[in-house]
Design a protein around this nucleic acid. Structure first.
Lengths: 339, 339
DNA sequence: TTGAAAGCGCTAACAG
DNA sequence: CTGTTAGCGCTTTCAA
């Protein structure tokens, strides 16, 4: 294994100079630098991250904590983050909770991360006060993606507004009985999006002068299967809603499936709208409120890198825009004027 | 930052004993060990992976090289691998190529991995000879998931047989014009599955005494959109096939979409079968040949860990079973006797 | 612009 | 069962 010493010996210089040359630090003559680089390459020198980390206190590694890697949304955020990290020479350490509460504790509690990473990205989870305290103690940049945590650096969309946008679209089409399929507003993994989207739903209803009927709010567990089950109950009743707003595309897809099984025509008998613009949304012709998923990962990674490289940083709250994408699962309700 | 020295001072022992006690090595009295553990906990001691790595030469980190994290298949494999790695105290370093050939080169060429990880998992890619040589030179356990690379440790399914199974199902239903939607058998990222599945398709055709018609073989790029496009051409022709075998569920889903758009009834006018048992397969009622995705990740991780912990290891080729899952996109062709 | 030297925090012989 | 002693391979003052 050739090390920095071998390179130093070869160019007849100190390891200090070689180290500086290799890392692009100033104070090295151009000639020396190019000789060092060339020699390092020729000798097949590969630096040891452990040694560099030990000596410098920097691991050039960022931890990404993900509730479930298998969900498209999180995978896409990870992909975005990975791109910019890799570009800047950082490695990405993946911590997948797989929806498991105990895994979550392990990650936050035993300070697994303490001497391991330079920064942390937390996806969608709203850390508890205790967890926030631990993150704080890390003394490293932390950015939270997809959750609203005041006082912390976050990258997200305005969930409440996204929900309002969806409901306004339905109300604008003439729907007056609009149901909501969402997820627990508090629970195992603590996300902030479910509550915000529910709030958006309710406020848009009020804004449109529509009554609030709690029986039209169902839990779809933010999954296809859950959305499907929720729709079952909603579509089974006499006074069936004419439109369903699902707080995620996956749940909306579940709704579509149930509608199909029940012979409820979409969009003739039922309009369906989601949030996300999931990769499968187009296949289902699903109308949705698109959010820039990949971009959230990129911005979050950029944010921690800036913090890492700058002197002092102020936790910034970045809110990315959403956009209504009208496809073919929404239409005016049957019996409406039509127009 | 409290280090091992602080713990040693506190228990009035050498750092060597503390290190042994903390790592569960033999040769430490029970009493000492518990005192050390307790003290370490009380002092909030967290070991430094960099220091341990430098001293021991082990990073307790495994690299996972993924063509695209956003594809469900790969994400699921990663999830499986992460589970067992985490369980055994290993970290997972993610290298996402995002389908980018240059990213691939970077990962394999500059020996990014050399002093960084203890083992490597490569998903689905068939490394080139050159890349294999580099991997070999790492001198670390490497397992390849989802590709057939003779002489290397692999975990995969029998792709050829899976394809045959799918085609036999169609032929058994009475189909005689069966089309294939697959992917390039050689190309940017070099997978072995496409060629194997195509071979399985052809051999099953021969086995059933059906003619081989190259115009019934289309490229679906292993994506929904590609499958959709491929189906367009296939379903547009006069002598339209009565069944389509897609080499992945995502392509099959694309086929279903095109069929719906073209008003081709499934399964009355067209049977469709895929491979994978993708999470969305059930929603589409897609008949498919299921493969144990998550399990492949687990087994692969176990394999490298065994290699890491045992003395010498023989690269093993694990082939996991597949299983036909009949749903509602396949049926006897129209005009057949019916049963 | 370069070099000498002192660690970074732990592990691993080797002794005892 | 425990301690002593060298490092692991870099980075980083401080001097020159």
């Amino acid at each position: 294994m050739t090390g920095i010493k071998d390179v130093a010996r070869e160019v007849e210089m100190s390891t200090a100079t070689v180290s500086r040359a290799l890392r692009g630090l100033p104070g090295v003559s151009d000639e020396t630098r190019s000789r060092v680089m060339e020699t390092a390459r020729r000798l097949g020198y590969v630096p040891s991250p452990s040694a560099a980390g030990l000596a410098s206190g920097q691991t050039r590694t960022v931890a990404v904590i993900v509730p479930w890697v298998t969900r498209w949304f999180f995978a896409a955020v990870v992909q975005g983050a990975e791109e910019v990290l890799r570009e800047r020479g950082y490695d990405l350490l993946l911590y997948n909770l797989a929806g498991d509460e105990s895994a979550r504790h392990r990650v936050f509690e035993t300070s697994l991360l303490t001497k391991r990473v330079d920064a942390v990205l937390v996806l969608s989870l709203k850390p508890s006060l205790d967890e926030l305290a631990r993150l704080q103690k890390l003394g490293r940049p932390v950015t939270i993606v997809g959750a609203d945590v005041p006082g912390w650096a976050t990258v997200r969309i305005d969930d409440e507004q996204a929900a309002r946008c969806a409901v306004r679209h339905l109300a604008g089409l003439g729907h007056r009985r609009i149901a909501y399929v969402g997820g627990a507003t508090e629970g195992v993994l603590d996300f902030t999006a479910p509550a915000a989207r529910l709030a958006g739903f309710r406020s848009a209803l009020a804004e449109a002068g529509l009554p609030h009927d709690p029986t039209l709010e169902a839990d779809g567990e933010f999954s296809v299967a859950g959305g499907s089950r929720a729709a079952q109950a909603l579509l089974d009743r006499e006074d069936r809603p004419t439109a369903i707003f699902a707080a995620s595309d996956e749940m909306a897809i579940g709704v579509l499936r149930t509608a199909r099984e029940l012979g409820v025509g979409v969009p003739e008998d039922l309009s369906v709208i989601g949030i996300d613009d999931h990769e499968m949304a187009e296949i289902f012709d699903l109308t949705t409120v698109a959010q820039p998923v990949h971009e959230q990962g990129r911005v979050a990674a950029q944010q921690v890198l800036t913090a890492l490289e700058g002197e002092h940083w102020v936790p910034e709250q970045v809110v990315l825009p959403t956009r209504l994408v009208v496809r073919r699962t929404t239409a005016p309700p049957a019996g409406s004027a039509g127009r």
